[in-house]
Structures are given as structure tokens and as C-alpha cells.
């Protein structure tokens, strides 16, 4: 089912707002990862506001969908969305990365309502997501497990251990979305560790692959629905994105993986983002 025009407009408005709020927040605290948060804005927003069966009033409901942020460094974007969904007060956001905060630098399932799995060390999210998917099968529940991974994260060997396993166990209730922004901490993937044909790799491991533009909410929505119809094998959506999307001087720049935002950069970024809102 394609996205209704009003839903599409709403998601795009939310993404623009989250981008602004993110820059404001990370400028304020002078720490955190802007690049990978900006590239996953549309994916996370579409999932939380159109697709995932999650309810802040019943955060431990047995049949809730499970979302795992494999690329844990995109935590700031996830936190803004969880706050917007009511998992915790908006006022908590400014405490991010500070002492006594429930919002850790990387997601912590014990401290933050709505976070399903503690992540940060890359590559663990997919294996754990597979465990969640297998638990659903054992319990006869129809919830889905969705894992958002970075493309640099795919360099971790455990990812391919998990990919093999998910195919063996025919985990068709497991969906991976790769935020394919092409940039990692030290440079581009091409420079640091070329990944070749990512889609071909997943196919070779027994996965159904869907390629989309990861900044188009309608494509994300359609692909997530389509994945549900694939039976007997897991699905991966490879979402082509731009690291730092929305802020011209951050786009495609590895330097903005995790760098404090200066006053001048902040003002420039906000000017650009106001146009899109």
C-alpha cells in the first residue's frame, strides 16, 4: 500500500523538524554524531511514525515490533523520535551524554524507555535482532524485528555470521535496513574498506534484497511493506543515503561523523534547514 499524500507530507515535515532539533541539540552539548544521524532521518521517521507497532503507553507489550539501532551512534536521532512518540519527556533531550542522564552516548536498554537493545559496538545488533525474531517464532507472535545498520558496520565479521544464520533459520520476520551513506569515520568506504556490490553480498548470503532511495519516505514505506510479503528468507533494504543529509557542508564528509558543531557552523546549518521546514 502506497503512502497517503498527507502521511508523506507529515513525515517530510517531521524529518525537517528532527534535523533542526538535532543540530540545535548537538551544538548545545558540543558532542555527539551528526553525520550518521542526519542520513537516517527519513528511515527512522518513516519506521516510527508509519510502520512500527510500538506504543509508549505499553513499551513492554509482548507483541510490539522490535527496532534495533545497530548503528548506535545515530542515537541522537532515535532519541528525538522516541521523545516525540512520548517514550520520555522532550525536556530530557538536553541531558544527552551528560552525567545522570537516561540518554547515554550510545543507546542503553536499561536506562532509556523505548530502546530495545544496547548498541554501540558495531555488528552486534543483527545477531541480537535474529534472536528476537526467533523468540517471536517460538512464542507464535507475529511481531517484526527491524535492524538499522550502517554500511561501514557491514565491515564487522559478525554481521556475516548473523547473515548466514538468519538465512539458515529462514527468518522472514527479520528485516534489515542498511543506511548506505558511503562514509565511515576515517573516510569514504571506497577509501577505507571498499565493500564492492553490497546487494550481491547479501543475496549470496541468502537474503532478499530491495534497493531504494533512503531519503524518500514513500520508497521506504513501500519497501518495508514489500519485505513483509517475502516468505522463507530474510529481507534487507539497501537505502542509498547521504551522510550529513540536509546540511550542505556536512554532506558526504567523514569529518562530520562525530564532531562538535561550532557557532558559525550552527548558524549556517540552521539557515539551510529553515528553508526545508
Amino acid at each position: 500500500m502506497s503512502l497517503k499524500p498527507e502521511s508523506k507530507a507529515n513525515l517530510e515535515r517531521l524529518c525537517a523538524k528532527f534535523r533542526q532539533d538535532l543540530i540545535k541539540l548537538l551544538h548545545g552539548i558540543q558532542t555527539g554524531h551528526p553525520g550518521g544521524s542526519l542520513s537516517s532521518a527519513e528511515i527512522l521517521t518513516t519506521l516510527y511514525f508509519e510502520k512500527l507497532n510500538v506504543d509508549a503507553k505499553k513499551p513492554k507489550d509482548a507483541n510490539r515490533d522490535r527496532f534495533v539501532l545497530g548503528k548506535g551512534h545515530a542515537a541522537p536521532m532515535l532519541y528525538m523520535i522516541l521523545a516525540e512518540k512520548g517514550f520520555f519527556p522532550q525536556d530530557d533531550l538536553v541531558t544527552l551524554r551528560q552525567l545522570d542522564s537516561k540518554l547515554q552516548g550510545h543507546p542503553c536498554a536499561l536506562k532509556t524507555c523505548g530502546v530495545e537493545l544496547s548498541t554501540g559496538p558495531l555488528g552486534l545488533g543483527l545477531s541480537a535482532g535474529l534472536g528476537m525474531a526467533m523468540a517471536a517464532r517460538l512464542d507464535g507472535l507475529d511481531y517484526r524485528t527491524i535492524v538499522l545498520m550502517g554500511d561501514g558496520e557491514l565491515q564487522e565479521g559478525i554481521v556475516w555470521e548473523a547473515a548466514m544464520s538468519a538465512a539458515k533459520f529462514k527468518a522472514d520476520n527479520l528485516l534489515v535496513i542498511v543506511d548506505n551513506n558511503g562514509v565511515q569515520l576515517d573516510g569514504t568506504l571506497q577509501e577505507i574498506m571498499p565493500m564492492g556490490d553490497i546487494a550481491a553480498k547479501w543475496r549470496a548470503f541468502g537474503w532478499h534484497v530491495i534497493d531504494i532511495d533512503g531519503h524518500r519516505v514513500d520508497e521506504i514505506s513501500t519497501a518495508v511493506d514489500q519485505a513483509k510479503t517475502i516468505k522463507g528468507q530474510p529481507t534487507v533494504i539497501i537505502a542509498k543515503t547521504v551522510k550529513g543529509k540536509g546540511v550542505s557542508f556536512m554532506e558526504g564528509q567523514s569529518a562530520w561523523h562525530g564532531k562538535p558543531i561550532s557557532k558559525d557552523d550552527y548558524e549556517q546549518a540552521m539557515k539551510e534547514l529553515e528553508v526545508t521546514l
Partner: peptide, 28 residues
């Protein structure tokens, strides 16, 4: 057999999978 997951020679994946199973109330 349905409650047994032999993941092959992939210890890290096995333990991370166990973690996921535990989040949903299983005792792995």
C-alpha cells in the same frame, strides 16, 4: 530441535543471538 540453535562456528553471533532471545523472555 525447535528450541535449539546451532549457528555454526560463529561464537560471537551465537552469544548475541542469545541476548536477543533473552530480551523476549527466553532463558538461553
Amino acid at each position: 530441535p525447535n528450541r535449539y540453535f546451532n549457528v555454526g562456528i560463529a561464537e560471537a553471533n551465537m552469544v548475541a543471538m542469545a541476548a536477543g532471545l533473552a530480551t523476549a523472555g527466553k532463558i538461553p
